[in-house]
């Protein structure tokens, strides 16, 4: 094949991919918009569930406060330092959960055959699955995380530099990207194991629980696993420890604090690949 043809093919494919992303975003907006409108028809009920979501997640922080009613430090970290870790991971997780939390219903859709109905609509399936039953009440978790993060940033005595200031929003966004990849990969796994929706809870809810505490609390092997195998450590541990000026786990070099965008991009790409593989195998084997 000659070079110009190859280049043209590449361009066509890129344009096609871009159009698909645009279609996906549009479908996501349309479907989630519809769910939000229907939720807003019952404002009181919405307010209650959103508050409930806020309170449920706030209890996690209450448990940490209770721990600190008995001790001054945990794993060598003070309450406000742990609040930074907690606030960062909960905010990141809250964003990913708000956007993609519905994806864990994929196995159910494969089981009852309703995935087929999504495949005959002119929009990417992933966008339709993610936006289905869009739960705005999940804002509660996000808001709760943001509160604690704000509290930590106010009470912590940090020698702020421009880089450190920039690091905070970067950490939250990339963390959300990493959790989003976990949600997508978890849904892709359900193509293979339909009833295994709970496995992904171990990495999503379990992951954010792990990251609420400093790495010094955990066994080395667990920290290694969370750094090299499923690199959740880049959600908040490494960037937050950079902000706090604390030593990194596993003696990682300083520059790793700037790796989260790369880690998030790679994980999202891998998760996207897993999703495509899952969907392709579904389309060749049926239900």
């Amino acid at each position: 094949m000659d070079d110009s043809v190859q280049a043209r093919n590449g361009r066509t494919r890129a344009r096609h991919g871009l159009a698909q992303v645009r279609d996906g975003v549009r479908a996501y907006r349309l479907i989630s918009g519809m769910w939000i409108r229907s939720l807003m028809a019952y404002r009181l009920s919405f307010a209650m569930t959103a508050f409930g979501n806020f309170a449920v997640t706030a209890f996690d922080f209450a448990a940490i406060l209770l721990m600190f009613s008995q001790v001054d430090r945990l794993g060598g970290y003070s309450l406000s330092e742990i609040a930074l870790l907690y606030g960062a991971t909960c905010t990141s997780f809250g964003i990913a959960d708000l956007a993609l939390g519905s994806m864990d219903r994929l196995g159910k859709r494969v089981r009852d055959g309703t995935l087929d109905t999504l495949l005959v609509r002119p929009a990417p399936v992933i966008a339709q699955v993610a936006a289905d039953r869009f739960g705005l009440h999940r804002l509660g978790r996000l808001v709760q995380g943001a509160f604690v993060l704000g509290y930590a940033l106010v009470v912590l005595d940090i020698g702020w530099t421009p880089v450190k200031i920039l690091m905070v929003p970067l950490m939250v966004l990339c963390g959300a990207g990493i959790f989003a990849a976990v949600f997508v990969a978890g849904a892709a796994f359900q193509f293979a194991a339909r009833d295994a929706a709970e496995v992904q809870n171990a990495f999503t809810y379990g992951g954010t629980t792990l990251l609420q505490f400093p790495p010094t609390v955990f066994a080395k092997d667990l920290v290694r696993g969370a750094t090299y195998i499923l690199p959740l450590a880049f959600v908040n541990w490494i960037p937050a420890l950079y902000v706090l000026g604390r030593p990194y786990p596993l003696d990682l070099p300083t520059w790793t604090a700037f790796a989260p965008p790369l880690v998030a991009a790679v994980l999202l790409a891998l998760a996207g690949l897993a999703w495509r593989t899952g969907l392709r195998s579904y389309r060749s084997t049926g239900s």
């Binding site: 519809m34 229907s38 055959g113 309703t114 005959v120 609509r121 002119p122």
Partner: peptide, 24 residues
Amino acid sequence: ERTRLARRIGVVFGQRTTLWWDLP
């Protein structure tokens, strides 16, 4: 070209709905 085709065909599954179950 599933999504391109989707605009030009209509599908009704007797056993399951393509409508959004919980919404009007």
